[in-house]
Write a protein that binds this DNA or RNA. Structure first.
Length: 152
DNA sequence: GCCAACGTTGGC
DNA sequence: GCCAACGTTGGC
């Protein structure tokens, strides 16, 4: 089982939205590096930190589980969708998604605290300019962030 | 709202 | 294949 961190903007889709839906599609990833991980490496049963970005309180807010491994993101073929990609070929879809299930909230861990923790220095999240919306988390980083919540 | 950093696009 | 221009991300 592997660990991941998924970014979301809470004004659009928050951990509370996920909790109320229980299971959600993780559609709309339109970055190739993130796509490659979603398509090839994120597996059923993997654990995911949910991270709130572009908001007042930026940081890790909870945990979800991957309940469906990668399959084509059908929004890329929907002209009405903000995620529509006219260049994507239905015979060979360009974008993929997974389904995740809400597991639990965590006590908030701010980006500021994560940046201040040397054990997390290698996370793309804390590196300057990183815009990855889906990123791997090592076992050690996962444990460290859980430790920072004071919950285990 | 600002703007630095990054990714993508497209002309050549 | 280079690289300037442009659009987007995302913290602050």
């Amino acid at each position: 089982m592997a660990y991941w961190l998924f970014k979301t903007e809470p004004d659009t889709f928050s951990i509370d939205t996920l909790k109320s839906q229980k299971v959600s599609l993780w559609e709309g990833v339109r970055n190739y590096q993130a796509r490659n991980m979603l398509r090839d490496e994120v597996k059923l049963g993997d654990q995911v930190f949910i991270y709130h970005s572009s908001c007042k309180d930026v940081g890790v807010v909870g945990i979800a589980t991957v309940v469906k491994a990668s399959y084509p993101d059908h929004f890329q073929f929907d002209p009405e969708s903000p995620y529509f990609d006219p260049k994507s070929d239905p015979e060979s879809p360009r974008w993929f998604m997974v389904d995740i299930e809400y597991q639990r909230h965590l006590r908030f861990v701010s980006l500021k605290r994560m940046k201040a923790n040397p054990a997390l220095a290698e996370m793309p999240l804390v590196k300057k300019g990183s815009r990855l919306s889906v990123m791997p988390v090592t076992d050690a980083q996962w444990q460290e962030i859980l430790t920072m919540t004071g919950q285990f």
